[in-house]
């Protein structure tokens, strides 16, 4: 987007202002996420940049891993007054358990449904599709209220089963959407060819369909995982301390003891999201490349 030579100085000024404005917005988007990372390595018990952190050369006294030690449950630091325990690790295990279980169920159900929805013979497609993606549309607080009342009747509140059911419902729309999008370019002649060569439907599915739609399924699964892993409203109402997850513990942490240990967990989550984002991007580019070859 270099400027052509005939631009007036006014236009030139406007253009630089425009670039500056965009730069500020990018800064606005990313700065908060970056700012928390150094503070998580601070010695101070407050979530601030201490003077020692800002001096040059850096003062080694101002930096430490004490909050990370605290997070993983190493309680050797006697100067800490807040109760130290394995709460964060317990929450992490629970989060992964709930997240992975929900992802598995959501991906299986969602992929099957997407296969059905992509068939030309599907009756009431629009209606069914809008029912299936409705959990994504309804605000979480309404979903949480409705589920809380209803699940309480069956004693599912404060159980892992209840939370996983809720998370699967919230996560499937993402799987349905991504897999359906992958199936748009799917050549149905492939399945016909496979079947005419004598493969049973199950074999066709695993040998022909699955490898082709796998990128979409993986993207969907990652979306499903992050939905469950980051979900906080449902667990706030439907989880007891036994089902403590990372978001629930963070929520409690922000409300009660504002200490940098929250930022340590936040830093870990930012790293996790970078990993997930890169995976999805790689898969998307791969799919684009494959499609490009097909079109030629």
């Amino acid at each position: 987007m270099a400027l052509p030579s005939y631009t007036t100085s006014g236009q030139r000024l406007f253009y630089y202002f425009y670039l500056f404005f965009c730069g500020t917005v990018f800064f606005f988007l990313i700065a908060p996420l970056v700012a928390i990372i150094p503070i998580s390595f601070s010695v101070s018990p407050f979530m601030i940049f201490t003077e020692g952190m800002l001096t040059f050369p850096p003062d080694p006294e101002a930096w430490s891993l004490r909050w990370y030690r605290y997070m993983v449950g190493i309680c050797t630091d006697k100067s800490l007054t807040t109760p130290c325990g394995n709460k964060w690790m317990y929450a992490t295990v629970n989060s992964f358990f709930v997240g992975l279980t929900s992802t598995f169920i959501a991906t299986s159900l969602g992929t099957l449904a997407a296969l059905g929805l992509s068939r030309p013979h599907m009756p009431y497609k629009g209606l069914i599709m809008s029912i299936l993606i409705s959990p994504m549309i309804v605000p979480l607080i309404i979903t949480a209220a409705g589920m809380f009342f209803f699940y309480a009747r069956f004693n599912l509140v404060y159980t892992f089963t209840g939370i996983i059911m809720a998370h699967v419902a919230l996560a499937t729309p993402f799987v349905v959407i991504t897999v359906t999008a992958t199936l748009v370019g799917f050549d149905t002649n492939m399945t016909k060819a496979s079947q005419s060569l004598g493969a049973k439907p199950i074999r066709t599915f695993f040998k022909v369909i699955m490898p082709l739609i796998l990128p979409g399924v993986i993207s969907g699964a990652l979306f499903a995982f992050i939905t469950s892993f980051d979900e906080v409203v449902i667990v706030m109402f439907m989880a007891s301390l036994d089902q403590l997850t990372i978001p629930k513990q963070m929520w409690a942490g922000i409300r009660q003891e504002i200490s940098p240990v929250i930022l340590c967990m936040a830093t870990c989550l930012v790293v996790l999201s970078i990993l997930l984002l890169s995976t999805v991007e790689i898969l998307r580019r791969r799919a684009e490349r494959l499609r490009g070859i097909k079109a030629r």
């Binding site: 996420l33 892993f229 936040a266």
Partner: peptide, 16 residues
């Protein structure tokens, strides 16, 4: 990246 990051992380970041 913000899109993929936990809502709580971003909210905490704003408090900071």
């Amino acid at each position: 990246l913000p899109f993929w990051t936990s809502l709580l992380v971003r909210t905490t970041a704003w408090i900071v």
